[in-house]
């Protein structure tokens, strides 16, 4: 599509993470907050490694 350049994906993801935590904090499943925070940190790691697909196997091995 003929499109304008999107804002930086990482900033948008950060916004999504914030919205998710806020949604949980204001709902009945607030107790899931620490678990979801933990998962988001792991997700950030996964996304970071996946953003270097050619060397990802080496990064995984190093970890």
């Amino acid at each position: 599509m003929n499109q304008p350049p999107p804002p930086r994906a990482w900033l948008l993801r950060l916004g999504t993470a914030g919205a998710l935590l806020s949604m949980l904090a204001h709902g009945s499943r607030w107790w899931m907050l620490p678990l979801v925070l933990f998962l988001l940190v792991m997700g950030a790691g996964l996304l970071f490694v996946a953003s270097f697909p050619y060397v990802a196997p080496f990064i995984y091995t190093a970890i």
Binding site: A9, L12, T16, L20, L39, L40, G43
Partner: peptide, 13 residues
């Protein structure tokens, strides 16, 4: 965590 959660960013791009 690798893709679907980040829908807003994915839709934008």
């Amino acid at each position: 965590l690798g893709d679907r959660l980040w829908l807003r960013a994915n839709l934008t791009s």
